[in-house]
């Protein structure tokens, strides 16, 4: 073996990823060749520094307890699938009922049928392609809204902007809430819908009391971390509390403005 061949195999040798026979050949060469020994020594020196650094990193006190706390708060997510599906089915029915009632009382056009079905919600898992489409559509909505002078509105900051599934309200502080806001121009009116989602930070009753939501009545609704609030922007009220993924949430939110 020549030095170039040996050098190309030094990393796998060091990482114990070479077959014994090949490894022996390399070791034989290394023990005699000063140039290759230098490369080998660099590998060992770097490894030793990496170990020192790795061991220097201390895990923060109580991290495991904090994670266990958050996991406990989101217990519903780890229930067995059958139970989970039952909950989602029930949630889907509630959604359908609420939507039907909303449409009836607001005297909306009867031709606009409820676009939400049980299939839209039950068993819906995070699908990145769907989520990306949803985001793209939100961007398109933003563009079309601009044309007619509508701008998506951030409830909590009170400013008009599209926040697109991002952490918002950094400006207004306190509210560690993710939400998607979008607007649509319909029949000469600007309509907005905001979906609130809280996957980040631990929301307990005390936190909520200190930072109430714009609707003023989320305490019961968002006490369970990982919940999703669907807010009807028109009535400024919460119409749904669920633990749906963003991909499942989007069509529901969309159905309210359509």
């Amino acid at each position: 073996m020549n030095c170039d061949e040996v050098c190309s195999l030094l990393n796998p040798l060091f990482d114990d990823e070479l077959a014994n026979e090949k490894a022996s050949e390399l070791v034989h060469h290394l023990d005699k060749c000063t140039r290759c020994q230098n490369s080998w020594t660099k590998l060992t020196a770097l490894h030793e520094q990496a170990l020192l650094l790795r061991d220097k990193v201390q895990i923060p006190d109580g991290l495991e307890d904090r994670i266990r706390g958050r996991v406990k708060a989101a217990t519903v997510s780890t229930l067995p699938k059958r139970k989970w599906q039952t909950i989602l089915t029930a949630a889907a029915l509630v959604v359908a009922l609420i939507l039907a009632a909303t449409m009836f009382f607001t005297k909306q056009d009867a031709a606009v049928a409820s676009p939400i079905s049980a299939e839209d919600v039950v068993g819906h898992t995070v699908d990145h392609a769907v989520a990306d489409d949803a985001k793209q559509e939100a961007i398109d909505v933003k563009a079309s809204s601009k044309e007619v002078g509508c701008e998506p509105h951030c409830f909590q900051c009170g400013t008009w902007k599209l926040v697109e599934m991002d952490e918002c309200c950094v400006g207004c502080g306190g509210h560690k809430v993710w939400h998607l806001t979008y607007a649509r121009h319909k029949d000469g009116q600007c309509e907005q819908v905001t979906c609130y989602q809280m996957p980040k930070g631990y929301f307990d009753r005390k936190t909520l009391a200190e930072h109430p939501s714009p609707t003023g009545k989320p305490a019961e609704a968002v006490v369970n971390n990982m919940s999703v609030l669907l807010v009807d922007a028109k009535n400024k009220d919460i119409v749904l509390v669920s633990s749906l993924s963003e991909a499942a949430l989007y069509p529901i939110a969309k159905s309210i403005v359509e």
Partner: peptide
Amino acid sequence: RSFLSKRLALSSISEKYVSPS
């Protein structure tokens, strides 16, 4: 590893060669 070795100036180390085994 090559990038980090250069950044850390490991070429100037004076460590003695230790056989892989």
